[in-house]
Simulated assay, not measured.
Amino acid sequence: MNFILIVLPVFIILAVGFIGQRVLDLDIKSISTAALYLMLPFLAFQTFYENELNMNYLYIVLFCILLLFALIMVSFLAGKMTSQQQSKTSAFVLAGAFMNSGNYGVPVILFAFGETGFQYAVIMMVIQSLLMNTVGLYFAAKGSKSGGTLKDSVVKILKMPVVYGSIAGLSLQIASVPVPTFIYNAIDLIGSATIPTIMLVLGMQLANISKKNVEMKELSAVLVIRLVLSPVIAYAITALLSLDSLLSSVLIVLAAMPTAANTTMFAVQFDTEPDLVSFSTLVTTSISIITVPLMIMFFS
């Protein structure tokens, strides 16, 4: 019951966005742009500024990089097997390689593993945020239907303010530079509104999905990558790194989380198969109500 109460708010926000879009027919691109350019940089700054660096970062950084590399390889293979389009392959990477370790994963870990597990989850959230806002943005830009070279993709990333928000937060945290209270209060307000806005965008995008644009073989491939292969690969990596049991359990459960909501925003912004990415987020989140408790039961 407690787990359902943790997940239920996510679905309520999705429902608000879904119903709002059906009734009001809003401009999703404008709202997505506002969240990506005006709000997400403040959340990134806050995340990196508040979480102090320690030795656990090293192990979790290695874990995240190895997991991401493996999932990108699997996603590329799945993309080539189901479609020859670059946009579809990039969509597989967005939906398959990036998990919702933040607004979904962190509270679940707190409930399942307590305060120590929660601290591990926060560290992974920070690292995943950095990877998603660099590597994830690269694949979103690369898969844009407007096309573009490697240079074009890199230029698009460098234009994203979220990258500089992350760098600024990490730099000030390392340098122990205090942020004035009146400024930080504003940052906190904007940052706190970012995740709900992203979830609203996801709900709105789901209201516009056309079933003909989402093939079952593609959706099935994403489901297998995100909910099956990801935790299996995570288990192998934790064994390879010889991590302690609690840290291993936390990382494996987080690896089994559904597709990150931010990937929908990236897909909408760059027109990288937004229907496939959005629907993958919805379906993996729905199924995770069953799969995540099973993972917790097995590893706790």
Rank of each mutant, 00 (worst) to 15 (best):
F18M: 12
Q21H: 10
R22V: 05
K29C: 06
S32V: 12
A35H: 02
A35M: 09
L40P: 00
L43G: 00
Q46N: 10
T47G: 04
F48L: 13
Y49L: 02
L53V: 11
M55S: 14
S75M: 01
L77R: 15
M81C: 10
M81A: 14
S87V: 02
F92D: 00
V93W: 00
Y104W: 11
L110F: 10
Q119D: 15
V122C: 07
V122Y: 01
M124P: 05
M125A: 12
T134Y: 15
F139M: 11
S146V: 10
K151A: 13
D152W: 04
L170P: 01
L172M: 13
Q173G: 07
I174R: 08
V177K: 06
I190A: 08
G191V: 01
M204H: 04
N208D: 14
E215D: 11
E218G: 14
A221P: 08
P231F: 03
I233H: 01
Y235R: 04
T238A: 04
L241Y: 05
L243Q: 00
L251N: 03
I252D: 03
P258C: 04
A260K: 06
N262S: 10
D271W: 05
E273Y: 06
P274G: 09
F279I: 04
L282S: 04
S286I: 14
S288V: 03
P293Q: 07
P293F: 06
M295A: 10
M295Y: 10
I296A: 07
I296F: 08
